[in-house]
């Protein structure tokens, strides 16, 4: 649900974030703090502050779209405590990693910041200079500039944190709808087959969608294995079908609907068409109201005696 950007509050949050990170690094609570700094083109990039001075480079603005939680997997070895900043969806990504038991909570210090919406960095970058300034400094952003995920966000406040910066924002339930899935479901099977074939053919299999995904956190990915060879190394629609099936099914019930997979896809494959179908089905078949919010036991890791039966044909 896009919300009005409050530039003043964001600025205060950035100041408080720097102060908090500086405190944590100074008193030794953490030995590194995961946040964002300004990249060469002005867009935030991931940043690992290791000294109190470096904490001064942290930024907090409406362009911090990238989920940092996945970087924790790089720091599994060792005992160091890690600080991390999360907004609402960032905390879902973090919770995903925690619920999957992929990083110990006791080695984490989480700074949470309630979110008033994130903008699509690519779209903001493409704006003429004056307009970009109006957006970033005046907070005047049209609906279309927000990240897609803000449209269905029902978790603007961090779900995991040790320190919360600022006040929680009003948190209303948002009906989870999947318009693109509904649209595709209305097509004939043949049309859908052709549609997805087009997507498979476009894929260059760079694995950006997998590597950015907080739910894709296995120690070893079966797509990388040679034995069994789930995905042949030759590229083409057939192997890409397998790739995208495996990727989507393995995160079914664990996808946090952040949409990072499709945002980072360089060739523009709308990957959420695949993920959303699972979210929609899981919510309809098993009555899960917020299928994208990490649960202690995932929908496909459990069963109910009264689950619909599926014997026979359609």
């Amino acid at each position: 649900m896009p919300r009005k950007l409050d530039v003043k509050t964001l600025g205060q949050a950035q100041g408080a974030l720097r102060a908090e990170a500086r405190r944590l690094l100074t008193d030794g609570t953490v030995s590194v703090f995961l946040g964002h700094e300004e990249g060469w083109d002005g867009l935030p990039v991931a940043f690992f502050a290791a000294t109190p001075e470096e904490a001064g480079r942290l930024v907090w603005n409406p362009l911090v779209a990238f989920n940092l939680a996945k970087y924790l997997l790089d720091r599994l070895a060792g005992e160091e405590k890690v600080g991390i900043v999360v907004n609402g969806c960032g905390s879902l990504a973090l919770d995903r990693i925690l619920k999957d038991h992929r990083f110990p909570r006791e080695r984490l210090y989480v700074v949470g910041i309630p979110c008033t919406g994130l903008l699509d960095p690519e779209k903001v970058l493409a704006l003429p200079d004056e307009e970009r300034e109006r957006v970033l400094e005046g907070g005047e952003a049209g609906e279309d500039l927000y990240l897609k995920r803000c449209g269905w966000c029902d978790a603007p406040n961090p779900v995991v944190y040790d320190t919360l910066i600022g006040d929680p924002v009003p948190d209303e339930p948002v009906a989870q709808e999947y318009p693109r899935v509904v649209e595709l479901e209305a097509m004939t099977p043949e049309e859908r087959f052709e549609h997805f074939k087009g997507l498979y053919e476009k894929c260059i299999r760079c694995f950006a969608c997998r590597n950015v995904c907080p739910a894709c956190n296995c120690r070893e990915c079966s797509l990388d294995q040679w034995e069994p060879l789930w995905m042949g190394r030759s590229t083409g629609a057939s192997e890409q079908l397998m790739y995208h099936f495996i990727r989507a099914f393995d995160v079914a019930g664990r996808c946090i609907r952040c949409g990072e997979c499709e945002r980072v896809c360089s060739v523009g494959i709308p990957l959420m068409e695949l993920n959303d179908k699972f979210l929609k089905d899981i919510s309809e078949l098993f009555g899960v109201k917020r299928p994208h919010v990490p649960a202690d036991i995932e929908p496909l890791g459990q069963f109910a005696l009264e689950d619909p039966d599926l014997e026979g044909a359609v």
């Binding site: 990039v45 690992f48 970087y71 950006a208 997998r210």
Partner: peptide
């Protein structure tokens, strides 16, 4: 070490 920290080990740069 520092520059690699940010990399997510995808192949986008090499493939494009």
């Amino acid at each position: 070490e520092k520059v690699a920290a940010r990399c997510i080990s995808c192949g986008t740069c090499t493939f494009v």
